[in-house]
């Protein structure tokens, strides 16, 4: 509780600092006087400052909201999510994220954290997840939706632990193999696949550096921070949202949250990141 209070005060203080920063930015010389490189350096300094204070990450507000959602009765069944089994038994949250994605006997499929939370909302609370899946991700400037807030909290409760997804059974191996095939599959009007941008080290889109995601060392760093506060869209972005956004950029249609493809891609990436230390929620561009 003490910890929670401190965190809240700290995030409120940050909101004030951010507002002050924006006011300063408004008074700064007009855009164009600064080169993109300078802007990029400024953003990097801002991200660095957020990283230096462990309580300064706005995503922690969403994690608090996620905890509240987890413990508050809701849905037609008026139940909380406290009996949700994230893989380590009903109600066990600490360390559960580190072992996801994994196969769930009750659901008969491999699930990532968001797909599992959605499943628990349906099973325990009787929530109509079809309605939720229609608009699962926030637009720019809007806060992360409920499942994402809960996922942020759950992920944070594995912070500092190494990724150890349980994917060595038959279902897990098949899912990772599917994820790898999807990662490399080119289609759409631009002929893009995930690998178009993420299959070499040290490359960039414009000034944005791209992780080489089939390389464990780079995957560990890149995957560790999700869900993350995204400075450019001023909200938390989850891994499911990240996949959806990549397909948007690839000129593909809207990836369905919780689809087998979305879980397979996440399983492939987390499998590559195995052993890397979880640093969620992180801070991204």
């Amino acid at each position: 509780m003490q910890k929670l209070m401190t965190r809240k005060i700290s995030t409120v203080a940050l909101a004030g600092a951010l507002a002050a920063g924006l006011a300063l930015a408004a008074a700064a010389p007009p855009a164009g006087a600064q080169t993109d490189e300078e802007t990029q350096r400024g953003l990097e300094r801002f991200r660095q400052m957020l990283r230096e204070d462990p309580w300064a990450n706005p995503a922690l507000l969403d994690a608090d909201r996620g905890e509240l959602l987890w413990t508050t009765a809701a849905g037609p069944k008026n139940a909380t999510l406290e009996d949700c089994d994230l893989g380590l038994g009903p109600g066990v949250v600490d360390g559960a994220f580190a072992q996801l994605p994994r196969y769930f006997e009750d659901a008969g499929r491999v699930m990532d954290v968001e797909t599992r939370i959605l499943w628990c909302m349906q099973e325990l609370q009787g929530v109509d997840v079809a309605a939720y899946v229609k608009r699962p991700h926030p637009s720019g400037g809007q806060p992360v939706k409920d499942v994402g807030a809960i996922a942020t909290w759950v992920a944070n409760r594995s912070e500092g632990e190494p990724f150890a997804p349980v994917l060595d059974d038959a279902a897990g191996r098949a899912t990772v193999a599917m994820g790898e095939a999807l990662f490399n599959r080119r289609s759409g009007p631009f002929d893009f696949s995930c690998a178009t941008c993420h299959s070499a080290s040290g490359q960039r889109i414009r000034l944005q550096e791209l992780p080489h995601l089939s390389q464990p060392e780079e995957a560990q760093v890149a995957i560790a921070e999700w869900p993350a506060y995204r400075v450019s869209s001023t909200h938390v972005m989850t891994m499911q949202h990240r996949m959806y956004d990549c397909y948007w950029q690839m000129r593909m249609p809207q990836l369905e949250m919780g689809s087998e493809a979305s879980v397979a891609l996440i399983a492939y990436l987390v499998d590559k990141a195995a052993g890397g230390e979880i640093a969620a929620p992180g801070i991204k561009r």
Binding site: R173, A174, A177, M178, E180, A181, L182, R185, S187, M252, P253, Q254, L255, E256, S259, E260, A261, S262, A264
Partner: peptide
């Protein structure tokens, strides 16, 4: 462990969109 067939991958893609 040889990986999914093209038909299996196509089916998973169709279901995802």
């Amino acid at each position: 462990d040889e990986g999914p067939s093209t038909a299996e991958v196509d089916a998973v893609i169709e279901a995802a969109f």
